[in-house]
Structures are given as structure tokens and as C-alpha cells.
Write a protein that binds this DNA or RNA. Structure first.
Lengths: 347, 347
DNA sequence: CTGAAAGCGCTTACAG
DNA sequence: CTGAAAGCGCTTACAG
């Protein structure tokens, strides 16, 4: 029964129709699970689909429907832990819904460059998830033309999420509040902060959370020092702070920053946690294995990504299941890098 | 002159034609830079394109041409440094060539699951880059149907790269050779190895490189210990090795593994590099900031990703510029974690 | 140098 | 329940 001699190229809806002895519209109905098809007809079509290895063309579908089953993630970075984890969450959820996922990187925060990247992403025809943790991302979110389905992943919602442009976020305010309180409760006089770029915005939730904790404790409010995203920036910031003997507790915008700070303190001869306590954000995979292991606040980036997709999916398809998409609350993970202050408290 | 009252939706080729007073075929010629168009006509069309904000539909283009300007990266992971960097390299090159990039994650190495993921990626209609560093990726590369443009990113080429299915790789054999030699040259009797999953394959280039260095030095050849991809696996492997006092040098399949090993040695009370030397692969951003900072072999993953795209681009388009795509050779980076052996050599 | 026709593989009304 | 028509926005021959 070796009759697999198709003409050429993948089988189309018409090939299937011919094989099943029906019109191609009927094939369309079957593959779209349209109710009004006689069971016998359906069976014949399905058999032909199977036999020819038919796969419906996503491109043709997109052209005919005017919208493609694609979500493209716009982000300034794909390698740092938080960004990468959000991307992963989106991909997981998209895959489960049989969506394709694209990624566009915002190489620069330059207005024209960002606009170009947004256009390119829009050309793909699906929905957008914009990671707006940094200037480039924030700008991209603003540049998305009205009518294009988009959900933003933001640090702090700038205003109540509009129905047509929803946002997802983690409770960074609470996260910073808890971490600061933890450090304060250990007996530190105040808590310094090494900021990631997103914290630059006046409305930063983390800055606000830390401020609140500091205020409640009547502690001094030293200004945040900029650290960037990676270990190198943390190292530079750490060197600065290490020179000030009054500094005994440092909270960092992410674990990579904290790693750099740890190194700077080591070089400056200031033991952690003996003299200085350090905490980060994210709970990246390696943080538990550093020496000293890092106290941090675990943030559910993957859940955030999944939630973003769920929202987009709902906007894109009426019939999309309104799946619950819980984003776990930030969780303080206390490890070796934080302890009571004191010149020689080490045990 | 506020005449921006288009009917609805984005402008199509016909809208532009109407505005310019030509047929839509002429518009097609202009946007495709076809030579035979009168300059004056071209100018009129271009003006209309500008005025209407026309963007050619990628979907329609793909349907008409039978191929889309997309590259989708198939990978078992998007978060680990090596994988993420390759993805970034592909994205950079693809963006420069005005290609879209998609990503498909191989959640399981299960044959059926991998095949389904490959089909999904194929449905998108462009080319594929498959990261085949692990069983899932290797299987995916095999499952790609003939005729679909694909380039594999592999640890070791299994055979001379076929013309229709090229491969890119870093010289892992050389990298492992150099790292092992470095450790040996410090005076260690032999070098243990904590492997990443890709090293499981009998043809592993790294295993071969290390073996060669060991053989040349007439050193014992302890079998590799499996570590997985992350710090947790490195930690477990490190605990095992730490218990053996004869172990004084450990090479790890990647920097995350090395980080876990470092932690295990610390807990076991074996100072690095005083008693044991450790080296990794990759030179991840944080490796220079660990304490001790990590000796490692820098691998050009981003260049690898760019090279993979260049190859694919060439296969997809006759006219694609044959851009040189150099992948830097592995580079040994000596830091604090490696030193001369000896119970108490610490300075 | 430019226009009219057919087709890429589907879907969405419209008939029957 | 099923088929014939028109159209999604382009490109690719074919004419002129």
C-alpha cells in the first residue's frame, strides 16, 4: 500500500479534500472542529489528513484571519536571570496554547531604534509582551500602536491597568520592604541600596518599599547608588560603599549585583556577614551556592511570564480559557550573607 | 493637508497604488527594488508609501514566496549562559538581516515530544537553528525533515558537515586540552572532570581533549563524574570529589558547575586554590567576581550564534551576503581558583 | 517600463 | 450537512 507519492511539497487542504472525496471547505470545517459535519464525512477527512501528513499552514491561516498565533517578547536583554526567566514563562504558556514565540531585542533605548523594533515585532502579526523594566522597554511599551494587543511586564504599574493594555508585575515594593526589614531587624542602623536601572524611575516600587521600612524604623535614608545589571556594576558600587565604615548592610537590586558587591567587600577586607550584611533580589540558581550563600528575595519571574501570556491569550481569542495565572508573592530567603552587625561578630 | 483618513487597517499595496496612480504591481516592483521602473514613477510610489505609512505584510510575503524571513532557535534551555548567549548571537545577526527570530524549547528529550516541537518550528516556515548540546537537541536535529534549511550548533561535529546541513561549533577539544594542561603545568598529578550532559556522548570533544593532555603527561585518567548543567549538580559532584584526598584539581564542564564545586570544597574544608584547584568553561559574567575568582576557558557563544545565522541566511537566500563569521578560539583565563598543589601552599 | 491574470493556502459569508 | 465564490496581501510569470 505504498501510495505515498504526493505531487510535491506538503499536502494542502485541497490535497486532503481530493483524497477524502469532499470539497476543501469541508476539510476546513473538520480541522476547525466545526459542529455541522456528518460523522462519516469527518472520519474520511481525518483519515486523509492522517495519511497525507497534512499540517495546516500557519502562514495562510494568519493571512486569512488577519492575525497570527504568535506572541513576540520585546526585551532589552535575554541573558540576565530575570529577563530570561520571564521569557521562559511566556514560552511555556505559549507552547501549551500552540502559539509561536518570537523575541525582539531592544539593543538601544534610542527612540528611533525602539520604534523600529516595535514595528518589526508588530509586523509579525500576533500579540506583544513587552518587558518594561528599563528605559528601552518602557519606551517600547509606549510606542506600541493602539489596537495591537500587548501586555507589559512592569516593575510598578504607572496607573491602573487599562482594559486594552494590561500589565503584570511582582510586588517589588513588598519585596524591598521585607528585605529591608530583615536587615534592620538584625540590628543594622540603616540599609544601603545598590540599584538596578529600573529603580531610576521616581516611582520605583523597590525604592518605595525600602523607604517605608527605613521610615518606620526611624533609620537614616542614604541615597541609592547605581549599579547597572551585572556583577561588574555591583563590584564598582561595592568598592564605593566598602570605603565607608558606617556601611554595615547593603541591599542589591539583583543577585548579580550582590555577587559583585560581595567581591568588593572581600577585596576591601570587610568580612560578610561579620562586618557587613548583603542581600539581593531574584534568588538566581547560583545564589544558594555562593560563599557566603546569598540572602535574597525570590521573585516569581516564570510565573510572571505565564501570567503575561494568559492575559494576551485572552485578549487575542474570545474563547481562550481564562486560566488562573498566579504569580507567587516575593519570598525572603535568609542565608549566610546576612547577620548581626559588629566589627568581629564572626563565630 | 490632513488627508490621513485611510479607510481602515494598515495600508496595503493597493492603497499605495491608488495613491500613486499606478497599478499595484508597480508598487511591488518599487518595494522590491526592481530595476525597471521609471525614476519618476518610483518617486511617486515612494512618496505614497511614506504618506500612508505602508508596511509590507510579512505574512502575505511568506505565503506568496513560500518561505518566511524567520529563523527559529530550537533549544532545550534558554536560561543557562551558553544557550542564552547563542540565542543572543542568532538574534543579533537575524535582526541585522531583518529576520524575525522565534524560539522553541525542547522541554523533554522524549522522541515524540521532540518531533512535535520540530514540526511546530517547521510550521513557521523559515529556517532552523538547533542547539544540539544535549540529548533533546541532538534528537531534534535528527528529526528535522530533509529540505528544511537548518544549521546545528554542536559540541562535536559527528561527521564532515554536509552541504545541506551545516554545523557550527567551538573548538571544545582544544579548550579542554588547554585547561587540563594548565592545571597539570601547575604540578597536579591529574585532573578530575565534572561533566555537563553533552559530554556523555562517546565522541565528546572535551573528554577527548582532556584525555589527550592527561596521556601526554602520563597522568592517571579518572573517569568523569556527571554534574548536569547547574550549580546544584556541581555541588553534588563536588561533595563526592571533596571526600577523596587525592583530588587536587577539578575541571568543570561549565562555570555554574564550578561554582557548585567551589561551594562543596568550602564546606568540606578544602581551601581553593590552597589544596584544590578548580577551573570551568564559558567565562560567564560572574566568574571573575567569585571568591576565589574562577579560572576558566572563554567560549565565544555569541559568535557561534552569529555564525549559525550567517550560514542559514546563505542557505535561505541566494543573494545573502557571505559575511565572514569568525568564531573566536577558546581562550584560557587564569584567575585565583587555580594554583600549585600542596596541603598548605596558601600565601 | 507598466498593467492584467493567476496563485500561495487558508477562512468567511452565501447558497443550497 | 456540504459546496461554490470571494478575499486576505503579496509575488511571479505573461503580455504589451
Amino acid at each position: 500500500m505504498e501510495v505515498t507519492g504526493h505531487t510535491r511539497g506538503p499536502a494542502s487542504i485541497r490535497d486532503v479534500a481530493a483524497a477524502a472525496g469532499v470539497s476543501y471547505q469541508t476539510v476546513s470545517r473538520v480541522i476547525n472542529a466545526h459542529p455541522s459535519v456528518r460523522p462519516a464525512t469527518r472520519a474520511r477527512v481525518l483519515a486523509a489528513v492522517e495519511e497525507l501528513g497534512f499540517r495546516r499552514s500557519a502562514t495562510a491561516l494568519a493571512l486569512a484571519r488577519g492575525r497570527s498565533r504568535t506572541v513576540t517578547v520585546l526585551t532589552a536583554d535575554t541573558t540576565h536571570y530575570g529577563y530570561a526567566s520571564i521569557l521562559r514563562g511566556v514560552e511555556e504558556a505559549a507552547r501549551a496554547a500552540a502559539y509561536s514565540v518570537g523575541v525582539g531585542v531592544l539593543e538601544s533605548a534610542d527612540e528611533a531604534a525602539v520604534a523600529a523594533e516595535v514595528r518589526r515585532a508588530a509586523d509579525v502579526g500576533g500579540g506583544l509582551v513587552v518587558i518594561a523594566y528599563d528605559p528601552a522597554g518602557v519606551r517600547a511599551l509606549e510606542a506600541v500602536p493602539a489596537g495591537l494587543p500587548v501586555v507589559g511586564v512592569v516593575e510598578t504599574p504607572a496607573s491602573p491597568p487599562a482594559d486594552d493594555r494590561p500589565w503584570v508585575w511582582t510586588d517589588d515594593r513588598e519585596a524591598a520592604y521585607r528585605a529591608t526589614r530583615h536587615l534592620l531587624s538584625l540590628g543594622h542602623e540603616t540599609v544601603h541600596y545598590v540599584a538596578i536601572p529600573s529603580d531610576t524611575r521616581p516611582a520605583s516600587a523597590r525604592i518605595a518599599g525600602r523607604r517605608q521600612a527605613l521610615t518606620e524604623a526611624d533609620a537614616p535614608q542614604p541615597p541609592p547608588v547605581q549599579g547597572g545589571w551585572g556583577p561588574a556594576g555591583g563590584y564598582a558600587a561595592g568598592l564605593k560603599l566598602a570605603g565607608d565604615p558606617s556601611v554595615t548592610a547593603i541591599l542589591c537590586g539583583n543577585d548579580d549585583l550582590a555577587l559583585g558587591v560581595l567581591r568588593a567587600l572581600h577585596e576591601a577586607g570587610r568580612p560578610v556577614p561579620g562586618e557587613v550584611s548583603v542581600a539581593g533580589f531574584d534568588d538566581a540558581p547560583h545564589s544558594a551556592y555562593l560563599t557566603p550563600s546569598l540572602t535574597t528575595v525570590r521573585l516569581d519571574f516564570t510565573g510572571l511570564g505565564r501570567a503575561a501570556f494568559a492575559l494576551l491569550h485572552g485578549a487575542l481569542e474570545e474563547s481562550a480559557p481564562i486560566t488562573p495565572h498566579p504569580v507567587s508573592a516575593p519570598e525572603l530567603v535568609v542565608r549566610e550573607s546576612s547577620g548581626r552587625p559588629g566589627p568581629t561578630d564572626g563565630g
